[in-house]
Nucleic acid binder design. Structure first.
Lengths: 114, 114
DNA sequence: TTAGGTACTATCAAAAATGTAAGTAATGCG
DNA sequence: CGCATTACTTACATTTTTGATAGTACCTAA
């Protein structure tokens, strides 16, 4: 989906290399990531529970955002060999290290939006 | 630039309404915003200083991101009635209240990216 | 009168993110 | 066999973000 050598991609990469803040913001900054992280902070959840808990997400978007966060090591995907399938999502240690930051972002947002 | 009634826009608005974290992330989450905020945290700067300090920004992008942050009340634009023109950008009180959060995002990023 | 400096705008194009709708695989149960 | 359940995929369309390039307004000083 990403072109390897577009200026767009190169700019993104350079910024993330130079600047921890940029890196942090892209790992948690997708449209549905806050909604997912918020819920997983309270405990592990199944795919269908997440889907039903988050209004208006499409399955495609949910999966995309879960995959990205898994790749970035924020969450862990646990598959049970059952039929019908069961898959649970859970925060990793790295993901949990974000908790205080997520909390302070959330508090700041609640205080500052209109 | 934004369509008023696209599903995309409505989803964004709903999430920001429900979730302070989403609101916070969109106010600081543009491509060049971290780079700008980082520098303005150290003191006010002229437009041309910002432009020269941030590698690879185009003027168009720089202005767009500055305008958005001004609208969101994070930074303040100070125009001097001189020729040639002089314009300075500076953090507001609201912007400064983000400092500890920006710092912790930055630290987290520095520790966690590869 | 013309060139120079500053802070922009405007137009167009490319790329990326998000949304829509339908389909798939595996297996136990009736 | 045919259906139900769960967790996805796939193909495509739309919307949004980002980038490339050129041009503008203002006054001053030469």
């Amino acid at each position: 989906m990403r072109k390897e050598n577009s200026t767009n991609t190169l700019n993104k990469q350079n910024l993330e290399k130079e600047c921890g803040m940029s890196y942090a913001l892209t790992t948690i900054g997708g449209r549905w990531k806050p909604a997912i992280l918020w819920r997983l902070c309270k405990g592990k959840m199944r795919y269908s529970e997440l889907r039903d808990a988050i209004p208006n997400v499409t399955e495609r978007m949910l999966v995309l955002q879960l995959r990205e966060m898994e790749k970035d090591g924020l969450i862990k995907r646990i598959v049970y060999a059952e039929v019908p399938p069961r898959v649970e999502y859970e925060m990793t240690v790295k993901g949990n290290s974000l908790r205080p930051i997520l909390k302070s972002l959330s508090d700041w947002g609640d205080e500052n939006r209109l």
